[in-house]
Design a protein around this nucleic acid. Sequence first.
DNA 1: GAGCCGACCTGCTGA
DNA 2: CTCAGCAGGTCGGCT
Lengths: 235, 235
Amino acid sequence: MEPTQSSLWSSHFYPEKTPNPDDEREPMFEKPLTPSDVGKLNRLVIPKQQAEKYFPLGGDSGGLLMSFEDEWSKCWSFRYSYWNSSQSYVLTKGWSRYVKENKLDAGDIVLFQRHRLDCSRLFIGWRRRGAPEVAATEYGGKAGGDERWGLSHVHPYLGHIQGLGANVPYQSDRLHAGSMIQNGGGGGGKPKRLLRLFGVDVDVECHLDVSEPSTSESSSVLSRGPTTHLFYSQS
Amino acid sequence: MEPTQSSLWSSHFYPEKTPNPDDEREPMFEKPLTPSDVGKLNRLVIPKQQAEKYFPLGGDSGGLLMSFEDEWSKCWSFRYSYWNSSQSYVLTKGWSRYVKENKLDAGDIVLFQRHRLDCSRLFIGWRRRGAPEVAATEYGGKAGGDERWGLSHVHPYLGHIQGLGANVPYQSDRLHAGSMIQNGGGGGGKPKRLLRLFGVDVDVECHLDVSEPSTSESSSVLSRGPTTHLFYSQS
DNA sequence: GAGCCGACCTGCTGA
DNA sequence: CTCAGCAGGTCGGCT
């Protein structure tokens, strides 16, 4: 399937004109998916170097919840943690859903981006294996052309797309889609406590939210204040 | 291993003679073991319906220690808890030992019973996979006619089962096999606090309280003295 | 270091 | 078809 998502991304879809989303995002890194990344292990290994650079865990073994917006502004939350056993950083819970809904296969490439001004906003996208053009550059590239990053198939209806990232009004400067929530807890699903890391004040309105739709359990969003822990904006 | 428990069950081991155990026990439920139940996961999933009916946790997420007597009056203690993540009730600690010592395999069936008068006394038993009655053969070891089984309310062979256990000695009520101890605790092994649930005194009176344990979750059946939920004797 | 145990996660599947 | 249940997995802490 995969209706050639080519240019869904292109400007004409965002006539209202907000700044071109691409201008607001800066790529962090991308990773070609391995068979394991799309298989039944339900996890994505984040190369250590990039993980430590962009998603530092700060020694917190608990694991975090990280939320990313995709091209349609859909929010995807993943559990992010470090596995001592394999000495690697991984996205676990939520990842398999992303793979499935986007029908990702080994070889496809996922891209992680963040907002240029608000680095707490994270974005995720992907492109098919044979990546057209831009693929060349490790990532930096995009700029000029739209590429076929990630818009996948799944939606034939474009109407909405408009609402896509571009539009997400982040009126107050802080939306926290793309925020990380600390999941205390050894382990797991039932977060013992949740702390906001990025968002300044959580409550604002961003309902892009982090509320895990999946297991309702984790609900209680204990929001902590400004404990921000921004990652080091490099660039 | 497996000291051929042959006839431990048989009469000469318990000459003292007590009333036929079968008369004193009533079955609660049984479960055919799945490969996971006897595998390395070291846990037995208790079907939710039965778990909530017979072993209500009363919203206590801590977990309990539950003790059961087997046919030889041996006491087996298991940790009993609810896993939020899978929304299921499980026996964990202690279970693997039971499986191992009894050489249980997938397909074998475990039976949970309790004392008719003292519902705090719990019993556990099992029978071989295809074993309707005397399982002697398949099961090798044991001597004449005992079967390790308790009675199955599912199968209509009650009549004969009776004969069998004729002597399980439950030497006295002193054992508290069958008690539940609350394990505070979040998890990890160390019981934070312990409370008795079915006190020794509780025993004699089990009110038949068929009250629907609505989703056991919310209710706090806990710590109630005698408020046990008996099951409806359906003999 | 190995194994046990506690907790969590998810796909399948049947109601 | 949705949803709950559960079988089958994982990791990590502790012993």
